[in-house]
């Protein structure tokens, strides 16, 4: 579905991503782990079209079966092609209500009835959001904001859902809850690219995993494989 070939990202003088090759197959959960500053967010932000200074190839095969190179496309076009990003730090709109945040997530779509059905579907995934649908996003707790961020990304009905550190700053019980939702979505056929610092949670649910260090992939394999890899254990799982 998505293949990155020799991807480079440069911000001014900083070479943040240095020739990354990655593949996301349809129906998989692929995770990208690595330390803070390794370039994980730069990669997903590039895929979403938010970054300039991207070179290399990002080949994406969308629902229409056509393969295109995403490099240079505007974010709004990429959303229409079926890729959604729930960004790092959640970035919900604090002055809009929960319901409005979700409506915004469906901005690329026109079918009002289908959008409304999907809103109900998101509420069924996250009942807390339904209870609070009239509240301003900024009044939600951190965990609820994260649910809203994921729900909002789902509202575009993406073929590829990218989640950038959904467990950041959440209590362990909420991390588990989010993990369970990610697994359930995937069981329904949702392709997911998951970025995490919390390597254990990510690796245990991923089909395929990549380890990023200072802008380059240093390891790749199945989620379970990397979970038991001594190198990964030492560097990311606390020995």
């Amino acid at each position: 579905m998505l293949e990155l070939k020799d991807l480079h990202v440069r911000y001014g003088g900083i070479h943040a991503v240095q020739g990354v090759n990655m593949k996301v197959n349809k129906g998989d959960i692929v995770t990208l782990i690595g330390a803070n500053g390794a370039g994980k967010s730069s990669i997903v932000r590039s895929i979403a079209g938010l970054v300039r200074g991207v070179s290399g190839e990002m080949l994406y095969t969308g629902r229409d079966g056509e393969t295109i190179n995403l490099v240079g496309s505007m974010p709004e076009k990429i959303v229409k092609k079926g890729i959604a990003l729930s960004p790092e730090g959640r970035r919900i709109l604090p002055h809009l209500t929960v319901a409005e945040n979700l409506t915004l997530g469906a901005y690329s779509r026109v079918d009002k009835k289908a959008i409304e059905e999907d809103r109900q579907w998101v509420y069924s995934l996250f009942p807390r959001l339904q209870e609070r649908h009239w509240q301003k996003g900024g009044t939600l707790s951190g965990g609820e904001q994260q649910m809203l961020a994921v729900g909002r990304a789902l509202m575009s009905r993406p073929d590829l859902l990218m989640l950038d550190e959904p467990s950041l700053g959440l209590a362990p019980i909420l991390v588990e809850e989010i993990s369970a939702i990610i697994k359930a979505l995937n069981a329904d056929g949702q392709t997911i690219l998951l970025i995490e610092q919390n390597a254990y949670a990510a690796l245990s649910i991923a089909n395929r995993a990549y380890v990023l260090e200072v802008g380059a992939i240093v390891l790749e394999g199945s989620g379970q494989g990397l979970l038991h890899n001594p190198q990964v254990k030492e560097a990311y799982l606390g020995g």
Binding site: M74, E76, V79, L93, L96, T103, L104, R152, S156
Partner: peptide
């Protein structure tokens, strides 16, 4: 309206609004 929602959203966070597919 939807464009109105986008306006209110842009006024707070341009980048996130773009991620939602708003031109």
């Amino acid at each position: 309206t939807r464009p109105g929602l986008a306006m209110r959203s842009i006024s707070r966070d341009i980048e996130t609004t773009r991620l939602m597919g708003v031109s």
